[in-house]
Amino acid sequence: MGKVLIHLLLLTMAGSFLFTACDSEGCVDGQVSFAIGSCSQLPFDSLKLSTVSVYGTGMWSDSVMKSSVSGSSALEIRLDPASEITKLRFDFALKQPTDTIRDTVTFYYENHDYFVSIDCGCVVFHYIDSIGHTNNFIKKIAITNPEITNEKTPNFTIYY
């Protein structure tokens, strides 16, 4: 009986350490919410897009949010979590003819805070109401999924 009890106690200790160790796994979920966008050429347009750069506007006008991603890559846009309107400058660099065309895109949205986990903390999610834009290069913007979360699903498409 004594041996059995010793085995029991050892197993208890081992088990306790095992399950306590399993408790903290670190932050494995995304900690930032992105609006994922892409650029798509309308059939009748002959411009060849090279890269897209995204800049903040207003007091953030000098800050580059996303610099020079390939025209075919996904754009990851961060919306201001303290506001419900974010205005961004998009610079479209063209291959043919070599030029840079500038547009301003305004996102109108609602925010809501979401507690992800004890390790990751909180993420601010957004729900897009509408997207406004100038028409220098952009022809239209379609909202494909208005919910912006920490899961990387496409949210909008820019047509040029």
Binding site: V32, W60, R78, P81, A82, D113, F115, G121, C122, V124
Partner: peptide, 23 residues
């Protein structure tokens, strides 16, 4: 009750405190 959280996306200024009570 979840209190005293902050959110920093690396571009916009950090916002805090964020509170999500009584879930």
């Amino acid at each position: 009750d979840i209190r005293n959280m902050s959110y920093d996306d690396g571009f916009w200024p950090e916002i805090s405190p964020i509170e999500i009570p009584k879930q």
